[in-house]
Nucleic acid binder design. Structure first.
Lengths: 343, 343
DNA sequence: GAAGTTCCGTGGAGCGGTCACCTGAATCAA
DNA sequence: TTGATTCAGGTGACCGCTCCACGGAACTTC
């Protein structure tokens, strides 16, 4: 016994017992151990139990590296996302991780900017590592080109990416969400709805702008000029100060909750009463939205569901090599107090 | 040439060229290629360039699995955190990832609850996978026992964990942050400071409560009863309604910004003017805190720095097998409008 | 010119699994 | 009885890389 201990210590980098150690202890061949571990049939129950006991006793755990090397497969999933604590992307990441937890190990790469080169580099790195699949959370237009030139040899799912990327895609129906918000405001009796958008480099922004415009046009209303923000409360604040000078602006749809907060702040500062002088609808339903003053009416996306769908599509690709598929998640309107009928 | 292509296609699971392919093309042995790849000395410049050219031509990338198997080392870092979009933990995760990006692949495991068994299981899984190191973001008291029984055979850094865990630890000085907030309120002339804490299962909560109490006692003031929340704006709201009934409550320190928001909301609802009737200080400095009404005075933690420090300690452990070390990050007070002198 | 030193390169043995293939024994139909 | 099948398990090659031991060549040094 002292012997085997010394032996083990001598071997470099050995962390635990190997399959052969288990085999020796159980009095079978390494192959039989492998069969037991991988639930293959044709192992007598009695033998199986002996092997299992040996595994237990030695606290044996198969080496992922060795297995990956031998099979050419891996159980690692690469997720590329951006380095921001924005609510959407973050929720998405965690939703994905939860959905994957049972089958895969999730590794993340956060990018400061999702521009083409950075994105391609990140994806290629994952390919080099022979990951089982890749999920790219790429809400930026700049992602389009990068994704186009991506190698095809690995299962990949795009979340929130450009719809024309020709890849497997899970996306939220931004346009429908914007429509929900806009139509809600119109149905309250507002004659027009202004919009504070995110940066026009974001696909989410573009989709929401489109939905907003479409909803207005369908109602026979010419959309007012677009006010472009950058998702930050600060940009919402600026937009709010601008809106306050426009007499007939009675309703605004903000492309995310934090910009809505900025608008609210600007209004309070100017002594405007809310929601009487300005109705506001946000987007995201961040946890604190219900505690803004007034409580924010907003549009909610089920990020957990998006994660689940993304993973589902990825599994399909891995199993059957089919590389088509598209899932669109529908948002829901959450009505609170920040939008009412105009005075 | 057709031959080698066929050969490659026939081999199962082969994703790209192997080191021997590169060696053949460059007319050297695989060992020489390995030396070039790993920047070993004793390779003639001319040979090196030939090898590099071959690598380029074949688009060769070393297999991580094979390398891990051969060396017994891996470049994978495991991070265990909880599945929540709370600002602190999320920022921490991304800070860590950025700090690690150049050397390591970061894999995450998100836990619904950070109770002992779940935590141990997650860490053991990482150990089985022979990760290079583990970072546990464990702000809960329940983490203490789990961490105590953790095997010692892998470098591990605790972030935000129990100070008596005997492990390598990076932590924010919660107590000092609370003291900052409390003393700021006192210095404005308030006779007493109430506190809305996080759940008492969180170490962060406990530290902040301690700092708050200590600051009051140092000023010769008996701390008022503690109001316990759960980080959510909803719990802040409840606390706010409670505080509104207490005539001599003129100042409150909320353990996070979102609870502060809840308090603000409650005050608005009751028609109380802020900050005149109640001074509020938060904790976290979430991006939107500056756009609350009134703009929130709060305490900021440098999460990026925490991530950097955690990684630094991890590297130290990996390189030199030293497993001691402790870093404490100091918070800073961000003064805005939500705290003023009492009326 | 023999004996060290560098310097550069080769060959082969693992790392810990999986996979293709083989061997006996038992079962069963013809 | 015999051959075919199925079950239970063993053998050895191989995945792609690193590490160790070693072999020549070139350059010193005495």
């Amino acid at each position: 016994m002292g012997d085997s201990d010394q032996e083990r210590a001598a071997r470099p980098g050995r962390a635990g017992p190997a399959i052969t150690d288990v085999a020796r202890l159980a009095g079978v061949s390494h192959q039989t151990v492998s069969r037991v571990v991988n639930q293959h049939p044709h192992v007598r129950e009695q033998t199986r139990l002996r092997v299992l006991a040996a595994i237990q006793e030695l606290d044996y755990h198969p080496s992922g590296a060795a297995r990956a090397l031998a099979t050419g497969r891996s159980t690692v999933l690469g997720v590329v996302t951006q380095n921001s604590t924005l609510f959407g992307p973050t929720s998405l990441l965690f939703g994905l991780e939860q959905a994957a937890a049972s089958d895969f190990d999730v590794t993340i790469t956060t990018l400061r900017s999702l521009d083409g080169p950075a994105l391609t580099r990140a994806v290629r790195r994952y390919i080099d590592q022979q990951v089982a699949g890749i999920v790219v959370i790429a809400p930026l237009v700049t992602a389009r080109d990068a994704l186009a030139e991506l190698p095809e040899r690995v299962p990949i799912v795009l979340v929130d990416g450009p719809p024309d990327a020709g890849k497997v895609l899970v996306t939220a129906d931004q346009s429908a969400g914007a429509r929900l918000a806009t139509e809600h405001l119109l149905s309250l009796g507002h004659r027009n709805v202004w919009h504070v958008s995110g940066p026009n480099t974001w696909l989410d922004s573009i989709g929401r702008v489109e939905g907003w415009q479409a909803a207005l046009r369908d109602a026979g209303i010419e959309p007012p000029p677009l006010i472009e923000g950058d998702w930050s409360p600060a940009s919402g604040y600026e937009a709010g100060r601008l809106l306050a000078r426009i007499p007939d602006a009675t309703a605004v749809f903000a492309a995310n909750d934090h910009m809505a907060l900025g608008i609210i702040r600007a209004m309070h500062e100017l002594g405007r009463r809310l929601p009487e002088t300005l109705s506001i609808v946000g987007f995201d339903d961040v946890p604190e939205a219900a505690y803004f003053t007034p409580a924010l009416t907003t549009v909610r996306l089920d990020f957990t569901e998006i994660g689940r769908q993304a993973l589902h599509l990825l599994r399909e690709q891995i199993d059957s090599a089919s590389s088509v598929g598209r899932r669109v998640i529908q948002p829901a309107l959450i009505v609170r107090d920040s939008a009412t009928a105009p005075e």
